[in-house]
Design a protein around this nucleic acid. Structure first.
Length: 898
RNA sequence: GGGCGAUUAGCUCAGCCGGUUCAGAGCGCCUGCCUUACACGCAGGAUGUCGGGGGUUCGAAUCCCUCAUCGCCCACCA
């Protein structure tokens, strides 16, 4: 605590310093020799050039909460951080920097450009990891990795070579997804499908023999320049006579055949399809089967190549589209144009429309790898939260397609393949190759590997594989992966496959997929929309604890978190206030420990159950219940439930009630002060522990001031409170039954105090004025509780006399507690009799309505016969209580003379 | 085109293996309080035909069907 008396918690003054002290104490470093149960979490490595945004904030908060929870539970915990070299993303960033200098990467050349990227990464990279410290991330920074580290490069090559030797990596000419802006191939997963409003054009191709036309339908008319055939379904009677004939391709003049192929759906469009093998995956397959040749009509930038008529050469693909349509119209060959909504692939990095392109690329054969990864899920060894995500995973695995892993970039792991132009040999090697067996110089493949080709290995490559290191042995496999659903296929599924293939075991057993942070219009937060929330700004203004609590409480399992970027105050102030509340509760407790206190169990002078007040027993019962609820919630990933359980316990039970209850005992030498101090301190200690995973800073700051704590101990590594009452040091002698009785008995005291306060408020009794109260017809439990806590009741409700039985007064406020006990507050002149009559009448009417429906329910033979006996009995009791209450209220009305 | 979620107070959300801890929390709103931990607070209060319709059941926010709106995932129908 910077200033123990500061009435306002100042996170900025505490957090950074506290984090530094955690690091100095080396609390987050995992020990490979630790014998205990391990808990390993792989952080999804952020892009090395990334800046922390609220999505990272959410993801890492969830991980940190769970890691801190398990660390306190005594597990050998490793949260492993790292950064991803992020091929396309990083290259794009640096290209933009270079562009400001008026240059392109081609101007610089491969080597110099690569050096520029390295410089950029060295200078600005990894900043995000520093930013994670601001939100309290308890990673083992000593093991931080980068996906281009030499050790990880070794793993990448090892994997590439092994897969190649197994025949699972191959090179081939296929249609791939090409981004004309990034100038590289993309995997299927990197081509994001988006619905687009487009058109479908019907084009007429004349038969060579002049006997008519065939009309084809297309969404990309410009590709007709590369057509080498037209296909129809073999059973389509409209066209059977034409199969084998030839067409004259308009604009181009090329003669192309009409072929029959099963892939054609006769019901769609005109039933005749133009075939462009070089620019469409389906057409590529048809072309192969029908022996049609391929004509590449576009440059890598998606401009019309030299293979098209002069008039169109050099045009951008969309310009060419317009021109082609115009030309068809002019020739009278445009049959019709229809609106057509369809899914089009976009580059996941720059959102440019993908162009399917025929090229030589490297692929991984996925089906054999998917098999064991799918089996792990089917066996229940791998589970997903929320569960339904597992079905998506299985579906993807079942329909998995080969993975295009080569990228035409300069930033990344260079493909470890060398070609000998002299003898034509291809050499795949773990180490660099300069010379072929034949003696000639070799050249390395120009391409680099997909970023995810290094990411999918990190669960083992980051801990030393392929070396047999102590870390690898100690920390593989891990337990948990926490990530956003977007990268389920990019990364999560592939890690499982890699784990099965190279380690013989899945890399984690649980995958927790959390939601996305969105604005109030449910749009994803993004830089381009300007609707983002800067987590660091939130940390600065409200504290990391407030940020973390808000993110955690706004999120139930698998759902999105909605926050308003335009109103940080509404989103974050409430939790900042909670931290402050906690701070002040701590201030109060810690500054009132001066008097005598009592040792806990295990000491001759230990606290005994018979010394505790009803209130003491009640807070112990509440504390115990909160330990159970919170522990269960954390363990089941219901972090919002854990948060609200501790929130309610601390604010309502502990601060609003218990602290108020014990004040008289704390001040001066009032009897029982030693008991109250011991229980208050213990309860507060437990609450700090329960809250620490979510609000690590304020809880640690307070915990460090708790007296009697061993020097050099930290809440971050303190033990988790035990949920079993008998196991706690304090409650020895208090049976669960007794705690449970105390809980419900004290609840009646609370009810009584609240009802008196409500009557006072209703009749504007001034806060300073004491009132008399009569408790009427209390049940046994209430009677004992009210007598035991009469001092409390008098003080908290400002009561001068607490009487039991009837009052001679007739005029006053009246209430009935849930157990049927009546409460009468004589108010004499202060009361408006008409108002009280009305209030009672309303209350009676409400009760009578309940009684009516209850009588009907119990009068229903079906209900009495079919519902469980216990339920019926419970309903009968309710009816009795309501009738008593209604009777008491009516009597009251009579006495008031209503 | 297939599959899956969501729809509860003005806002953001709990509750959903059926029965008063079933209509809740925080914020906002109204009233009264600067009560010696906290005005980033305390006490009291108002607010909902639980998206529409139908069904199952003695009983439905909770289970089934259907419609509407929003969202997500998958898909080579040119």
């Amino acid at each position: 605590m910077s200033d123990p008396l500061a009435p306002q918690y100042d996170p900025a003054a505490i957090e950074a310093d506290l984090y530094r002290r955690w690091l100095e104490a080396d609390l987050f470093r995992a020990d490979a020799r630790h014998a205990g149960q391990r808990y390993v979490v792989m952080m999804p490595p952020p892009n090395v050039t990334a800046v922390l945004h609220v999505g990272h904030g959410l993801n890492n908060t969830v991980q940190d909460v769970l890691v801190r929870f398990e660390r306190m539970r005594g597990k050998n915990t490793l949260w492993l951080p790292g950064t991803d070299h992020a091929g396309i993303a990083t290259q794009n960033v640096v290209e933009r920097v270079v562009a400001k200098e008026g240059q392109t990467r081609f101007d610089l050349g491969r080597e110099r450009f690569e050096e520029r990227v390295w410089t950029h990464v060295r200078e600005t990279g990894g900043a995000i990891l520093e930013q994670l410290k601001a939100i309290g991330a308890s990673c083992d920074w000593s093991r931080t990795y980068f996906t281009l580290d030499p050790a990880l490069s070794t793993a990448v090559r090892e994997v590439f070579v092994r897969l190649y030797e197994k025949g699972l990596v191959y090179r081939g000419k296929y249609i791939i997804n090409w981004c004309p802006r990034c100038l590289t191939a993309l995997s299927n997963e990197e081509a994001e499908k988006q619905e687009v409003d487009g058109k479908i054009w019907h084009l007429k191709y004349p038969l060579v023999d002049g006997s008519g036309y065939i009309t084809v339908a297309t969404t990309r008319p410009e590709t007709m320049l590369g057509d080498t055939g037209v296909a129809v379904h073999p059973a389509d009677e409209r066209y059977t006579a034409l199969v084998g004939k030839s067409l004259r391709l308009p604009l181009v003049g090329r003669e192309i055949p009409i072929v029959a192929d099963d892939a054609i759906d006769p019901a769609f469009g005109t039933g005749a399809v133009k075939v462009t093998p070089a620019h469409d995956p389906t057409d590529f397959e048809i072309g192969r089967r029908q022996h049609l040749h391929s004509i590449d009509i576009m440059t890598p930038e998606a401009r019309m190549a030299e293979t098209v008529p002069d008039a169109l050469q050099g045009l951008d693909r969309f310009e060419a589209r317009k021109r082609v349509v115009e030309m068809f119209r002019e020739l009278g060959l445009l049959a019709k144009v229809e609106d057509h909504r369809h899914a089009v692939g976009h580059c996941y990095r720059c959102h440019t429309i993908i162009e399917p392109r025929l090229s030589d690329q490297w692929f991984v054969k996925m089906a054999p790898l998917a098999k064991p990864a799918l089996q792990a899920y089917r066996d229940g060894r791998l589970s997903f939260i929320p569960e339904r995500r597992g079905d998506e995973y299985a579906q993807w695995m079942e329909n998995i397609r080969d993975w295009c892993i080569s990228r035409q970039l300069w930033w990344g792991h260079r493909i470890p393949v060398w070609y000998c132009d002299a003898c034509g040999k291809t050499i795949v090697s773990r180490t660099d190759v300069t010379r072929c067996d034949c003696g000639s110089a070799v050249r390395q493949d120009e391409d680099v590997l997909d970023t995810w080709f290094s990411s999918w290995l990190v669960p083992f490559s980051s801990v030393g594989w392929p070396e047999k290191t102590a870390d690898l042995k100690a920390f593989y496999p891990g337990q948990l992966l926490v990530t956003a659903p977007e990268i389920l296929f990019f990364w999560v599924a592939r890690m499982v496959m890699a784990g099965c293939e190279f380690m013989g075991d899945i890399p984690f057993s649980t995958v927790y997929l959390h939601g996305t942070v969105r604005d109030t219009q449910h749009r994803k937060m993004s830089k381009s929309l300007g609707n983002g929330i800067d987590p660091l700004e939130v940390v600065e203004r409200y504290g990391a604890d407030a940020l973390r609590y808000t993110l955690v409480s706004g999120m139930s399992v698998g759902t999105d978190v909605i926050l308003d970027p335009a109103d940080l105050e509404t989103s974050f102030a409430p939790r900042r206030n909670f931290a402050n509340k906690l701070w002040n509760a701590g201030r109060f407790i810690l500054t009132n420990l001066d008097g005598p206190t009592r040792p806990l169990a295990g000491h001759p002078n230990a606290l005994r159950a018979d010394e505790m007040t009803l209130a003491d027993q009640w807070i112990i019962a509440r504390c115990d219940a909160t330990i159970r609820t919170a522990t269960d919630a954390y363990a089941k990933f219901r972090l919002n439930d854990a948060a609200s359980a501790v929130f309610h316990f601390l604010w309502s039970d502990f601060a609003d009630w218990y602290i108020e209850l014990i004040k008289p005992r704390l001040y001066g030498d009032a009897p029982g002060g030693d008991v109250a101090r011991a229980i208050a301190l213990r309860t507060f200690d437990v609450a700090l522990r329960l809250l620490h995973p979510i609000m690590p800073f304020v809880t640690e700051a307070l915990w460090q001031r708790i007296p009697g704590r061993r020097e050099g101990t930290w809440l971050a590594t303190a033990s988790w409170p035990q949920p079993d009452a008998r196991a706690t040091t304090l409650t020895t002698g208090l049976s669960t039954a007794r705690l449970s009785t105390a809980d419900s008995a004290f609840a009646l005291v609370q009810e009584l105090v609240s009802s008196i306060r409500a009557i006072r408020a209703e009749y504007d009794v001034s806060p300073g004025k004491a009132v008399r109260v009569f408790v009427q017809h209390p049940g046994d439990v209430a009677n004992a509780a009210f007598k035991a806590e009469s001092g409390t009741i008098r003080r908290l409700a400002k009561v001068s006399d607490l009487g039991f039985g009837d009052s001679t007064d007739t005029v006053g406020g009246y209430a009935v507690l849930s157990d049927g006990t009546g409460v009468f507050v004589p108010l004499g002149d202060a009361i408006d009799v008409g108002r009280e009559c009305g209030r009672l009448a309303t209350e009676i009417a409400r009760l009578e309505q309940l009684i009516g429906s209850q009588e009907k329910k119990l009068g229903n033979e079906q209900f009495v016969a079919r519902a469980p006996a216990a339920v019926v009995e419970k309903e009968r009791e309710k009816l009795v209580t309501w009738r008593e209450q209604a009777g008491a209220l009516s009597e009251k009305r009579a006495r008031l003379g209503c």
